[in-house]
Simulated assay, not measured.
Amino acid sequence: MSDKNQTNNNSVISLTVGILSLLIPFIGLILGIIGIVFSKKALKQINITNESGKGLATVGLICSIVGIILQILIVLGLIAFLSISTFITH
């Protein structure tokens, strides 16, 4: 009874870090990688211990992946903007 009612701590961490990877610029890339690691770890533990939190881990994984993609696009956009602005000024 107590095993099923407990939520896996790693799934909560993966969701929190995944959401932060969407919101914090530049550091979000590192947070996204950490979120993926915690969500994979949480899913393994949930399958073994039968705890709840599988949905949280899945959403954390999705947020982390989207956060990484968003951060990469921001960095590429910044590089493109800076290269165009230096090209125009010269």
Rank of each mutant, 00 (worst) to 15 (best):
G35L: 08
E51F: 00
N8P: 04
K40R: 12
I36G: 02
I69N: 10
L31R: 04
S39H: 10
E51T: 03
I33A: 11
I19G: 05
I62P: 05
Q6A: 12
G32S: 10
V59M: 13
V12A: 06
F87L: 14
G67L: 07
H90V: 10
T16L: 12
L76D: 04
I34T: 10
S11Y: 01
A42N: 02
T89L: 15
V37P: 01
S83H: 07
V75M: 14
L61N: 14
K40F: 10
I84S: 12
S85P: 03
L78F: 15
C63A: 15
L76G: 03
A80R: 13
D3I: 13
K44S: 07
T89K: 15
S39A: 13
I34W: 03
G67V: 09
T16H: 01
I33G: 09
L29N: 05
K40A: 05
S39Y: 08
I72G: 11
F87K: 10
G53R: 02
T7P: 00
T86M: 15
G53V: 02
N5P: 00
L43T: 01
E51N: 11
L31M: 15
I88T: 10
N50E: 13
G67Q: 07
S39T: 09
N8A: 00
S21I: 04
I88C: 05
L73H: 01
P25L: 01
L31C: 08
Q45N: 11
V12L: 12
Q45C: 00
T58V: 08
Q6E: 12
T49D: 11
I19N: 00
G35I: 07
I36C: 06
I65Q: 08
G28Y: 06
N8R: 01
C63T: 08
I19T: 10
G60W: 04
V12M: 12
H90I: 14
S2I: 14
V66Y: 12
M1V: 14
P25G: 03
I19M: 09
A57G: 02
L61M: 13
I24A: 06
T49F: 00
I72T: 14
K4A: 11
I72C: 07
N50D: 12
G77A: 07
K4L: 09
I68Q: 09
K44M: 03
I36N: 06
I48V: 05
C63W: 06
L22C: 09
G28C: 03
N50F: 02
S64V: 05
S11W: 01
N5M: 06
L20D: 03
F87E: 10
V59I: 13
T58P: 01
D3W: 03
P25T: 02
I84A: 13
N10Y: 09
S39D: 06
A80C: 05
S2Y: 12
I88F: 13
I30E: 05
L43Y: 00
T49G: 00
F81P: 07
S21G: 02
